Computed example of a mutant assay.
Amino acid sequence: MLNPQWLRSFATLAEQGSFTRAAERLDLTQAAVSQHVQRLEERLGPLLIRRPRQFELTPAGRALIDYCAEVGAADQRLQQRLSEADAEQGEIGLISPGSIGLALYPQLLALQQAHPGLSIRHRFAPDREVLEAVLDNRFELGLVTLKPDDPRLSVSRFAEEPLELVAPAGEPVRDWADLERLGFIDHPDGQAMAGRLLSRRFPGAPGVRSLPCHGFTNQIGLILEPVARGLGFTVIPRYARLAFSRPEAIQVIDGAPPVVDTLWLLHRAEWPLTARAQLLLRRIRRHFSTSEGEAV
């Protein structure tokens, strides 16, 4: 069996791309990291092609990195299984899109206040990154907007979230000309979301790309700030709108037909959820089933 410290040194070296940075990250000397790599190469053959100030992994080196990832995942599964019965101690990892994340975060903080032994790790990420993080065992729970088809995942319906056309408070929005007058506040998913909603609300209109763009931000919590200041309109998911701190400065322009996305909860199917994760899910499912009824 390969020495775990040698594996940690090699994986950190591959991640950092430098013996100096790897040694700093591991709190070791460069000589120690070099020695660990040398010991591995004595067992496995050449792992690195060394060049001035850089190196390249050989095929054996890339295979060893995959092995390191498998060992890390196995270690995490062991830790989860050994501690899964304790619902009030330990870490819970949850990764989600930004809109639902804004609504989730206060609930996660409230749960941690009620159970100080818990450590809740939450990350905002797009669907692709959520899938990768759950499959790689870096997060126990994930939420996505597109239902995945992967036998390694357990997938269940979590909530529904309509897209909303949001304009400055008091601004009349009756037709396409009003949208042209206001201008569009864009965001990373803005063109796609606006295209889906506006094509239904205004059939036959030129489309969102024809509208003047009056701003862009990639921060989910800031998208509605320029709208509140009268700089334009946007299309965002409902939970992002509900989390905005100045609801009096904006308005939702109602209309039909609606565009509603389903949010899917996923976790690895091969092993049971920890008691901590089950505790978290009970709380947030209860909250979102209530808030959905209130928001519609």
Rank of each mutant, 00 (worst) to 15 (best):
T20C: 05
L266S: 02
P188I: 07
E129T: 05
L153H: 02
I92S: 01
E171S: 13
D86F: 13
I49S: 15
G72R: 14
R51E: 15
L78A: 14
D127A: 12
L102M: 11
H115A: 12
R43P: 03
F184V: 00
S18F: 02
G190H: 06
E270G: 14
S291T: 09
Q191H: 11
G232E: 06
E84P: 00
E70V: 13
V259K: 06
F10D: 00
A277D: 00
F19E: 06
R81I: 06
R8M: 10
F19P: 00
G93K: 00
L231F: 06
R50E: 14
P162T: 01
E84Q: 15
L48C: 11
A87S: 13
A69L: 10
L131Y: 14
N3R: 13
T290Q: 15
A277R: 01
I95H: 03
R77L: 13
I92R: 04
P126I: 09
H287L: 03
D86G: 09
P172L: 09
T262K: 03
T217H: 00
R209V: 07
E248P: 02
R238M: 08
A133Q: 07
G17Q: 12
G101Y: 01
L28A: 03
E56G: 07
P203D: 07
G190R: 03
G183Y: 00
D175G: 10
L224V: 01
C68N: 05
H287D: 08
A194H: 05
G204P: 04
R81Y: 06
Q30Y: 01
P162C: 07
V252W: 05
G221M: 04
P162Q: 02
P203Y: 04
Q278V: 14
L266G: 04
R50M: 13
A192H: 10
M1P: 11
A228Q: 10
L182D: 00
F55Q: 04
D189T: 02
L2R: 15
L82W: 11
P46E: 12
A23T: 06
S154F: 10
S154P: 01
P188K: 05
F244G: 05
R196L: 13
T145D: 05
R286H: 12
Q89N: 11
T262I: 08
E15N: 11
S34Q: 10
F288R: 00
F139I: 00
P106S: 12
S199Q: 15
E70R: 13
L211E: 00
H214Q: 11
G195Q: 07
R8Y: 08
L82S: 12
E42T: 09
P212M: 07
A167V: 02
I250M: 00
V235K: 02
V155N: 04
F10H: 05
S9P: 04
A177R: 07
A240G: 03
L78D: 14
E270P: 03
P257L: 12
V296L: 14
G204C: 10
A11Q: 12
T58K: 07
R43T: 15
G17L: 12
W176P: 06
E180I: 03
V37S: 05
E84T: 06
E70F: 03
T217M: 07
V71K: 04
L7C: 12
D127G: 08
A87Q: 11
R138H: 11
Y67H: 15
L108S: 04
